[in-house]
């Protein structure tokens, strides 16, 4: 077994097991830590797929930024820190049936897909064998694509973030003279 495979299965196992912790843990801090590990495992998978820039961004933005913010949010909000989520589990049987069914379906179709025989992947493999250019850093190429052919996508993504920012600011700000009833301040 080569090192690549070992690394792949290690990161894969890390991602899945940590995700299980996220879903099953009744303690929000544990769930947050699980999320951290899951996203780290995904970053590892990105790196193994030769998407080095994506892996770094995944660690910087998700692991380093968003999950840390999430954990701080949980810890600074004293009301929810040590408490289990109050929502119960409903529709246990139906949910389990649908989830299992989808899982089996996905596993079956993914294993039956035979990616190596798909036309576009077969073509890519042929080109690689002939010339095999060394894969360097992907940053430069990504940058060129983002301000070149995919400029519009880049701009629309910026708009999504702007909308999210405006929306979050609106929902989180202190109320002015709004609403039919005066709002009580949350201490």
């Amino acid at each position: 077994m080569d090192y690549y495979r070992i690394a792949f299965y290690l990161f894969g196992a890390l991602t899945v097991l940590a995700a299980v912790v996220v879903v099953w843990s009744r303690n929000l801090i544990h769930a947050g830590m699980g999320l951290l590990l899951t996203l780290f495992g995904v970053a590892g998978l990105y790196a193994l797929a030769a998407a080095d820039f994506l892996a770094v961004v995944q660690i910087l933005v998700y692991v380093g930024g968003i999950v840390i913010l999430l954990l701080f949010g949980i810890m600074l909000t004293q009301r929810i820190a040590g408490r289990a989520p109050r929502t119960g589990v409903v529709n246990r049987t139906v949910g389990a049936l649908i989830a299992t069914g989808l899982f089996v379906l996905f596993v079956m179709v993914i294993f039956s897909a035979r990616f190596a025989e798909l036309p576009w992947i077969a073509q890519g493999r042929m080109i690689d064998r002939e010339s095999a250019p060394p894969v360097g850093s992907t940053v430069e190429r990504l940058g060129q694509l983002l301000v070149g052919p995919y400029l519009l996508l880049f701009e629309v993504a910026a708009l999504v973030l702007t909308v999210a920012l405006i929306g979050a600011a609106y929902l989180a700000r202190r109320s002015r003279q709004e609403g039919a009833r005066p709002r009580r301040m949350i201490s």
Binding site: V156, E178, R181
Partner: peptide, 22 residues
């Protein structure tokens, strides 16, 4: 691009739905 448009629309609508925060 369709997906990005869908998200722009959806995020704005989520906020608009919850406009009456109180």
């Amino acid at each position: 691009l369709t997906f990005l448009g869908l998200e722009t629309m959806s995020v704005a609508l989520y906020v608009l739905t919850g406009l009456a925060r109180e």
